[in-house]
Write a protein that binds this DNA or RNA. Structure first.
Lengths: 343, 343
DNA sequence: CCTTCACGTGCAAACGTTTGAATAAGGCGA
DNA sequence: TCGCCTTATTCAAACGTTTGCACGTGAAGG
């Protein structure tokens, strides 16, 4: 099972030169004759030489590896972000080591530890729902360790963040519902302590306010798991009890929107005629539903790309970057489909 | 940005002992006094010592890292598999380095190269649609390098594979359609050269044959991209031209099934009354559709788990395992929903 | 003929661990 | 008192690179 890879020493022995010469020849250092370079490269190819990245990293104390910490992989948005990360990392010669926290704080901490032990050059994080204490990040930040946060960003000073304009997206969604003539617009909110949930809720409230609609306290219900079953139950409950009844739902994510849609259908309510629904994230299935689901698209791939570019730049510069200047807020886009358009 | 981690040498200097003592004390080697061990561990904790995994790997020529090569991350099934992989790897102290090939052969090759350069201990692969030549794998296999293939497995001798029983799943799906009274069952097939596509098609044909149904050549149409738009176009075409007209579709994946469903709806055909549809993979959205989509569930998470267990066992044993004995075929399960049940 | 310089290469240390073998210090029996 | 065993520790090499510096050679310049 050992691969018995040829090493620089093997090449050196074969050609009767020193390891340094081999090393330099392979890297096209000046001061090595063309002749030697040619011979070395030929032999390297012939022996299928593959540099030992570990040794190189150890020597250079740079591993060309970045760590990515994500709540869960099986999630349309996050997997899209990963895809973007992977693209840029690959293109720039970096490896990606990935762990998912499954929304567990403890796992987030230990993952970071093993990643650091593996000498990652930088870290990209979207933290877990459980995480309330950010000291494991701030300790690193203090030492100027390169970290870029994406999507879910902590309330810490001077961090590099890549987020999506949740506020505007939510505002646009709510505004659209209002313009369609819906008035009693309920909000299926995300976990309170996540900044994204707060922003979405804020956008929702602003839109209502701007249009002179006074939301009742019971219009906002937390659907923290964000899956369709939870939302379905919650919605069913609302439809039974709430007075006045909602005539629209703005959900903090698409799964919740689908749950609401199901509950409405089961309650015999027509979407969009009697109830309007808008989700958030634009998961693949939005266009597959009947009626198709209006949703706020988040540029996940872009987020991965930009966040990685930011991180790699930060690593390359080996210096600080002005967080306030370099943090990014990506645009969201409301995609209006059938579920929110009154006939 | 350098983290300036304390090293064994730092601890040694501090305590006025040698590096070896520190190393052994930390690892609870016999032959180190309890007193010393205590002191070392205390200091290590105090100085926030974190062993340099790179150095360790270099020395031990084992990196506790495995490589995972996957066609694409943004894919329900594959992301589920990754999740399973990640769980097991994490639990057993292995890192996962991940790359997606985007179905490109060239990228598959270069990814393997950089992973090998990074001294991965083993490899898990689901190869790309483009890959026709498997020599990059067979070369490694010859040297007894640990590889486990999952889902898409190559036609090579003596490889460790974890697959899903595509044949039986397809058979069950087709049989179910027949039993529901559908007769002219078309098959939206996957890329010809993928073993999974072949198996699914084989199961489809077997079922037809067992029930004495003679498929016409035009009943099988390749929908190789496997996305809903392609399938929708293909299906629309079929509905217009095929004679006799299909009364059911068995699609090689759920996206294609959705495409078919859309095309049927647009052609004014009622599902399941006039047309039955069954997909494959049981993506999340199956239950969200109206009518809900019958599908063959594949245990993706299980696949990730079992494949990783197999690989890590193989690595630990540092020896061969009997591929024929250890390869796994996981059970599929037909989930019957509305799209295929005649009223 | 001696210095100077450029060129091509080699030496050796370093990165942070691990580990077989050597060493030192006690303790104990004869 | 000597030898021997045990116990705790150190030495030094190794893993495969990279890299500052030194070295040797031959040619050009004075």
């Amino acid at each position: 099972m050992k691969l018995d890879q040829a090493t620089i020493k093997d090449l050196a022995r074969e050609l009767n030169v020193s390891s340094s010469t081999i090393s330099r020849a392979l890297k096209d250092y000046p001061g090595i004759s063309e002749e030697t370079k040619r011979k070395v490269k030929e032999l390297a190819a012939k022996m299928n030489y593959r540099p030992n990245a570990l040794a190189r990293s150890l020597r250079k104390s740079q591993s060309f590896t970045i760590g990515v910490i994500i709540p869960e992989v099986v999630h349309f948005f996050f997997s899209t972000v990963i895809s973007g990360i992977e693209e840029v990392a690959f293109a720039r010669g970096y490896n990606v080591i990935l762990t998912q926290t499954n929304e567990k704080y403890i796992r987030e901490k230990t993952s970071i530890d093993t990643m650091l032990a593996n000498q990652i050059d930088g870290l990209m994080v979207s933290y877990s729902k459980e995480t309330k204490d950010f000291s494991h990040f701030s300790e690193l930040l203090e030492k100027n360790f390169p970290i870029v946060f994406f999507d879910r960003v902590p309330k810490l000073e001077n961090t590099l963040n890549v987020t999506v304009d949740d506020y505007s997206g939510a505002y646009a969604a709510t505004q659209h519902l209002i313009q369609q003539g819906y008035r009693k617009i309920f909000h299926l909110a995300g976990p309170k302590y996540l900044s994204i949930s707060q922003e979405r809720q804020r956008g929702y409230l602003s839109a209502l306010e701007d249009y002179g609609i006074q939301p009742q306290p019971n219009w906002i219900i937390e659907s923290s798991k964000g899956n369709e079953n939870e939302a379905r139950d919650i919605t069913a409950e609302i439809l039974k009890k709430a007075d006045p009844r909602p005539d629209a739902f703005f959900a903090h994510n698409d799964m919740a929107a689908v749950g609401a849609m199901m509950a409405c259908r089961e309650a015999g309510l027509k979407v969009p005629d009697q109830i309007g629904i808008v989700g958030f994230s634009d998961w693949q299935f939005c266009t597959m539903l009947e009626p198709s689901l209006s949703s706020v698209a988040q540029p996940g791939f872009q987020m991965g790309v930009r966040a990685t570019e930011l991180l790699l730049d930060l690593i390359d510069k080996k210096g600080d970057m002005d967080a306030s200047k370099n943090s990014l807020v990506l645009k969201t886009e409301l995609l209006i489909r059938k579920s929110s358009q009154k006939p």
